[in-house]
Simulated assay, not measured.
Amino acid sequence: MRVGIVVGGSSGIGQATAVQLARRGVGVIVTYSGNPSGARDTVALVEKEGGTAVAFRLDVGRTEEFPAFREQVAAALRDNWQRDSFDYLVNSAGFGGMAMFADVTEELFDRFLRVLLKGPYFLTQALLPLLTDGGAIVNVSSNSALPSGAADAGYTAYAAMKGGLNVWTRVLAKELAVRGIRVNAVSPGPTRTRLADADGVVGFDAYPEMIPILAGQTALGRLGEPDDVGAAIVALLGDESRWITAQNVEVSGGFGL
């Protein structure tokens, strides 16, 4: 059985990805930070699909936690799947939010940096010895960092980190190609997730009036759902995408067209 790690799998895109993997017969390790009940829900949803999942707490913004997490992963692989390696890594943990350039503090900038760029970078480095040759990595970016994306005011810090994630994805794909490991990114548009912003306000539950506005700006006429993005991630991980690497796929339903 193949095994995947979904970082940030307690809700939204990460949770949808874990369930989609389970439907393909893949065992799942998910991480959570401040949402343990959501992680339990993810495990239950995976088990409902007939799969096996375990959940571990991990703050992706704290690199000092990574060595212990790697040991947890190694033990879970042995105990649950009788393996010493895993096949897929999805870096989907994060937080959103906006702040006008003049209002961005060093504290907020550093938080974006730790969670959205430094964390995925060094967590992937820590887990790389356990990732099997021929495996695959997908990083969750944002269409706000694409040249074709909308340059909305208030996203200078957030988009800068996602832009760095995009460049890292491409160069890492070159480095890991010698092991047959593919590295890609997906860039969602507006998606109905639980993702909290920098002030702890929860996404579209707090701003329902934005849903019809964003749907009106999307070619396919609705807001994106986590399953829309999860399906794209799992497709990139799978064998049908074996000849795709170093790519960034926008998954937005044509937002801004």
Rank of each mutant, 00 (worst) to 15 (best):
G224W: 00
D199V: 06
D205C: 02
E225R: 15
V202T: 15
G203M: 05
I213P: 00
P226Q: 04
L223E: 00
V201H: 14
L214W: 08
Y207C: 03
G203Q: 09
L214G: 07
D197Y: 05
G221K: 09
G203I: 05
L223G: 01
Q217L: 13
G221W: 10
I213Y: 12
P208Y: 08
A215V: 07
P226V: 01
Y207M: 12
A219R: 14
L220N: 13
F204I: 08
P226G: 02
T218I: 06
I211H: 05
D227L: 10
V202D: 05
G224N: 07
A198E: 09
A215E: 07
I211Y: 04
G216Q: 08
M210L: 15
D227G: 08
P226A: 04
G216K: 12
M210P: 00
E209K: 04
R222D: 03
P212V: 08
A206N: 09
I211T: 05
Y207W: 13
A215Q: 11
V202P: 00
D199C: 04
E209C: 03
G224Q: 02
P208M: 09
D227H: 10
P226S: 07
D199Q: 14
L223H: 01
E225Y: 06
F204A: 04
I213M: 13
D227M: 07
L220A: 07
I211N: 02
I213A: 13
L223Y: 01
E209L: 04
P208S: 07
A198D: 08
A198H: 11
G221N: 12
D199P: 00
D205F: 03
A219V: 13
G200H: 08
A215M: 09
E209A: 13
G200Y: 05
E225F: 01
G203H: 09
A206D: 10
M210K: 11
Y207G: 00
I211R: 05
Q217K: 15
R222V: 02
E225A: 10
A206E: 14
P226C: 03
I213G: 05
I213K: 14
A219S: 13
V202S: 11
G203S: 14
T218F: 01
L214V: 11
E225D: 11
G200M: 07
L220P: 01
G221H: 12
F204W: 15
G200L: 06
P208C: 07
A219K: 12
L220H: 09
D197E: 08
V201W: 03
G216E: 10
A219E: 12
A198M: 10
P226H: 03
Q217M: 13
G216Y: 11
E225W: 04
